[in-house]
Simulated assay, not measured.
Amino acid sequence: MEIGTMGKNDYIAVLVDKYADMVLRLALAYLGSLADAQDVSQEVYMKLFKHDRAFNDTGHEKAWIIRVTINACKDVIRSPWRRWFSPIEEALLPIQHTQSREVVSLVLELPRKYRLVIHLYYYEGYKTAEIAELLGHKEGTVRTQLKRARELLKEKITGGLEDDDER
């Protein structure tokens, strides 16, 4: 899709509709806070509006939006406001299916580096090499983080059931 076939505002509206859920989910996975994730989403849309160059293809478009989202999340983490203020009560996850909400809440309990690779791998469908490129890490690092994240999730899901059987 090119800007030339439609106005810039229409083009931005199409991109926002196309990637809104992905941006919010990625920011939520990175930050663990729905309010912060919504703020990051708004920041990404503003940067998208200010972006003047056309994207090469949909892969470039999606990668650019993911990269901008990750950078905006890093800005939130580095913000002195985040260190000074903590939310009184975290908002409930806007997920209707109870089992899905439980899995997402377990993923959000993981350390940030694990949440991010889990999200990009399982929810966005990226391969480990693509995740490594997006995050600026080595592919082996991403594979290790993915393996450790799976192990931590397995521990959280089984909740010590294996230990009880050995007694």
Score class of each variant (00 low, 15 high):
Ile65Tyr: 02
Thr5Met: 14
Pro87Lys: 00
Ala35Gln: 07
Tyr45Phe: 15
Glu151Tyr: 02
Arg25Trp: 08
Gln96Pro: 07
Val142Gly: 07
His60Pro: 06
Asp17Asn: 07
Tyr11Phe: 15
Leu120Ala: 06
Ala63Asp: 13
Ile95Val: 12
Arg83Lys: 12
Gln38Tyr: 06
Arg167Ser: 05
Val117Asn: 03
Ser79Met: 01
Ser79Ala: 09
Leu110Phe: 11
Ile118Asn: 05
Lys62Met: 03
Val40Pro: 12
Val14Asn: 11
Asp52His: 06
Met1Lys: 11
Pro111Trp: 04
Ile3Gln: 13
Leu106Gly: 08
Glu43Phe: 01
Ile65Phe: 03
Ile66Ala: 03
Asp57Glu: 03
Gly159Arg: 03
Phe55Cys: 00
Leu28Thr: 06
Asp75Glu: 13
Leu152Gly: 09
Pro94Cys: 01
Glu139Gln: 14
Val44Ile: 09
Thr144Glu: 09
Gln96Tyr: 06
Tyr45Gly: 02
Pro80Arg: 04
Pro111Gln: 07
His51Ala: 07
Arg115Gly: 02
Gln145Val: 10
Ser86Glu: 13
Thr58Leu: 05
Val16Leu: 09
Lys138Cys: 08
Ala35Phe: 00
Glu124Phe: 01
Val104Leu: 02
His60Met: 05
Gln99Glu: 13
Leu24Ala: 10
His97Gly: 03
Ala13Asn: 15
Arg78Cys: 07
His51Ser: 10
Thr141Ser: 07
